[in-house]
Write a protein that binds this DNA or RNA. Sequence first.
DNA 1: TTAAATCATGTAAACGTTTTCATAAATTTA
DNA 2: TAAATTTATGAAAACGTTTACATGATTTAA
Lengths: 343, 343
Amino acid sequence: MASLKDVAEKAEVSIATVSRVINGNSHVQMDTRHKVQKAIKELNYRPSRVAQRLRSKGKESKLIGLVLPDIENPFYVDMIRGIEATAYNQGYSVIIGNFSQNKARSEMYIDILKSEGVNGFIVAPVNNEDPKVRELIKSGYQVTCVDRDMEGVEVDSVKINNEEAAYGAIKHLINLGHKRIGHVGGQWDIPTTKSRLAGYKRALLESGLPIEEELIITRSSDFQNGVEATTALLDLNRPPTAVFTGNNLLTLGALRAIHARELKIPSDIAIVGFDDMYWSELLNPPLTAVHQDGFEIGRRATELLLSRLVEPNRPCIKVILDAKLRIRKSCGAAQNGRLSTDL
Amino acid sequence: MASLKDVAEKAEVSIATVSRVINGNSHVQMDTRHKVQKAIKELNYRPSRVAQRLRSKGKESKLIGLVLPDIENPFYVDMIRGIEATAYNQGYSVIIGNFSQNKARSEMYIDILKSEGVNGFIVAPVNNEDPKVRELIKSGYQVTCVDRDMEGVEVDSVKINNEEAAYGAIKHLINLGHKRIGHVGGQWDIPTTKSRLAGYKRALLESGLPIEEELIITRSSDFQNGVEATTALLDLNRPPTAVFTGNNLLTLGALRAIHARELKIPSDIAIVGFDDMYWSELLNPPLTAVHQDGFEIGRRATELLLSRLVEPNRPCIKVILDAKLRIRKSCGAAQNGRLSTDL
DNA sequence: TTAAATCATGTAAACGTTTTCATAAATTTA
DNA sequence: TAAATTTATGAAAACGTTTACATGATTTAA
């Protein structure tokens, strides 16, 4: 790779002048400017981001660190696409740490990204406390939370109203006549798990239905737990007539468990899932699910972060996006021909 | 972030000594070593990768650049996980460029990653020629190709035998009695598209079946094309009794098109897909598909790259992994109770 | 005992930028 | 015309490392 020095020599000027040309500094004469631009082109020169980053310690580093729970989850993949698209548009690179719902790995990635000299972070905190993220904020890094928020900290965040979305999903089941609704949730200390559970409970209470602990299982957020927890629900003396699954991996696991028993959906048991995929309609049966727009969440989060890099002390902004319930065939007949409904 | 200098001051030694302690250089006395380690701990010091990278220009940069066609495709997500796991294990960071099957974006990412000072690249070349990747190799970067290879270049690569895998899939259909088999392939100039098409043709020829151009559509590699191409096949005067789809997005598109016509799989039309997902069995119907192990491909590619960084001039290695056909319910009754078959 | 070798540590240069300061040339002002 | 201002450019420092070289202390060899 050609360096500033190479360009300077070729153009017979100092490296300072070359730097000025590159950064659009006005104090450089037309003909020298042209000489330099010619040399840059001939050498196919591009400035080293590494050196830029070292020199200007954060301020101009043009690198965003991304710390996400699970790259296997299509919802996060959509978010990554939204983040990438927005960031690269503005000349930022993105470096991804995928911690697989594992606290230790999350901390490891944060350390690595710090030492990579990132400019700011987009993070899904492991839980409401997440001391590592708190420390990050305290020590002056710019941070935006996605998908999950943190309490008692001044930090930008983008997420949906999980409680309300879950409430809507359960209401849908109740309206279809279900009275015994099971819930398979994710890891208990993840904020979204809590909110979705809260929405579930509120809907039941509001309709005068009892909340039965045996119908609620919140353990880990992965496929395997989806299988096991659903199986456990099916094994109850009085199994539920419907299940609400807390994320898309759990949903897939639940489907597996139900199919393994050769039960019919929705006549034997109905299912409504949290998180929608564009291929949800191709599942057996086409899945009724809560849709949240991962791409948009990513886009908004990136905009928030970039704006905060420019104006570090502005008051923090909490973005809460809407989710939609996409009604397909896993809960019973579609109602009034509507395909989706605002929550 | 604390720097070497801070540690040096605290421990009352020179920065050189601190550096030696960190890098395990033997020439440092026990008690100074302890003093330094204590200071490091107290200041929570971690070396700046940015500075390390600048200083040792590539040689020790500990950063791998990843340039992939499509992060929406679960197959590549598996690959990323394999690459990440292996890389981080050895202290390398990974930075991802996702070019969405777009040549210009692929080139942009390669430039960015170069200027990020990556140590080496793992790349899926856009096609056999890919002049940008050739140039990369020529200018001395270490490169490993994944999923796709390049002709006439000395470069490590990891992929499966696509021709053979496609051949096996088609043979399976033929054995079930299908005589008119359509093929929906990806973008024509992608190497995998060509190989899979070749396997398709070989299987037909070998069984004495004609190759009919109207049954073959290779356009772009995305979901939308899967829908459109399959619809076109169904609209033929003599539609095929089976389709072979060239990647998982095309498969999902094909399913959508078939369901839109309310045709029964496999009685009206059978389908075998390239690329398997762990949730393929949950599709309607459970999908018979060619399985390639993305995680393993990623792992092997990373090992190859890291080994080449140590020994840049070793002869190049071409790894070809096996694919398996996972037989489920989209082509007809499972045979002899076998669930999968080596290709 | 003395020369040679080894060991522990420090000094300073280098990596590729950006930026402050200095300086010389050109322009404006009085 | 002389002084003051503006403009174009260069020199050098700094960012945080690694490492070649230098130096003085200690050990080994003869």
